[in-house]
């Protein structure tokens, strides 16, 4: 009887019998297994320990923000440091519509979509006009300006108190069941985004995005319509993020710019991307769950000190994991055509 691990195989010899199991990563790459796990997890938690449901919701939402951000980064070839702007736009649009017009989540979703589309289209020329560094800085500033606008027009945006009385996302009477359903909805949105972006990055649009990522001028000389690709991959992710603003507004019943627009929230999203796997879309899911649970654990363990320790841990992880958490498992192979992040100077 002997057991050995050899060349990605688990070998079991028992007498004259020999058994082999492949533990090659690709057998773990079945999306169905992982999606199944993600769906089973909330059900399990709902039955065992429903207090954890908000963390799961949080994790799914963080991942769902980071996924379109990855697409935006790859498609425009620049790092956007202001993703929370679109969350703010969608959230405020939905909350205002809900409060002043008494609309429920379904019609306000449309409002949020329109708001996201409007601001996405309005700002997309920036990805053509501004070069790498200028773009980074300007996108960093836009949410902060938005925050200031919410303070200037206090009568509309209610400043740092936030808008109250947004209609709930789902109400079935039972609080725990409510949370469970919201959790499933968040998971659903995240999986849909994952599916869309994954299909996109495996389609024939991926090479043109990676070409733009690498060298815009040559890409255009080789027949890629650079402006079109950039505007599309700026606007659609912006709309996708605006939907999450809508989700936040209806989920909490309140929306305050001070929660979402400052740099702290942006950093969290950025860390989901970076620690998850350097803008690898699957890494975003891992990163989202990791960061949400890390925050929870730190608050439980350290209480008052957790806001201090949290960024320190993130910094250490950022500097020690060269390819992110997802990179521990997935080594980049040349055969893959998935575009990777490449910030130009």
């Amino acid at each position: 009887m002997e057991l050995e691990v050899k060349r990605e195989k688990l070998l079991l010899r028992a007498g004259t019998q020999k058994f082999e199991w492949h533990i090659e990563p690709r057998y773990w790459r079945m999306p169905a297994i992982w999606i199944g796990l993600l769906i089973v997890l909330p059900i399990f938690i709902y039955i065992v320990y429903p207090q954890l449901l908000p963390t799961i919701i949080d994790a799914n939402l963080l991942a769902a923000i980071a996924i379109p951000l990855g697409w935006m980064t790859i498609g425009t070839g620049r790092m956007n440091f202001g993703p929370q702007f679109y969350i703010g736009a969608g959230g405020y649009a939905a909350a205002l519509a809900s409060i002043h017009l008494g609309w429920g989540p379904a019609p306000t979703l449309l409002v949020a979509l329109v708001a996201g589309l409007f601001f996405g289209l309005l700002m997309s020329p920036l990805s053509i006009i501004a070069g790498g560094l200028y773009y980074t800085l300007l996108t960093l500033l836009f949410p902060l300006v938005f925050l200031e606008v919410t303070f200037i027009y206090t009568d509309i945006f209610k400043g740092d108190v936030g808008l109250f009385g947004v209609l709930p996302l789902i109400s079935v009477g039972n609080f725990t069941l409510n949370q469970f359903l919201i959790c499933m909805l968040a998971l659903f949105i995240m999986l849909i985004y994952l599916l869309i972006v994954d299909k996109l990055l495996r389609s024939k649009f991926a090479p043109q995005m990676s070409a733009i990522n690498d060298d815009e001028e040559v890409a255009e000389a080789m027949g890629v319509n650079v402006k079109k690709v950039k505007i599309i991959s700026f606007t659609i992710p912006a709309v996708m993020m605006a939907v999450l603003g809508w989700f936040y507004a209806h989920y909490y019943g309140t929306f305050a710019g001070i929660t979402y627009l400052p740099l702290a929230f942006m950093l969290k999203i950025l860390m989901v991307s970076m620690i998850g796997g350097r803008v690898q879309i699957y890494g975003n899911v891992i990163g989202g769950y990791f960061i949400a649970f890390l925050e929870l654990v730190l608050i439980m363990l350290l209480g008052d000190y957790s806001p201090v320790v949290f960024p320190i841990i993130l910094l250490i992880l950022l500097l020690t994991l060269p390819e992110g958490l997802f990179g521990l498992y997935r080594k980049r192979r040349y055969r893959e055509y998935l575009p990777t992040l490449h910030v130009r100077r």
Partner: peptide, 19 residues
């Protein structure tokens, strides 16, 4: 790797702020 520098430096600012 510009993205790591930018993120790391932002984190440092956040740490200082929180401390």
């Amino acid at each position: 790797q510009e993205e790591i520098i930018i993120t790391g430096l932002l984190l440092i600012a956040l740490i200082a702020d929180q401390v």
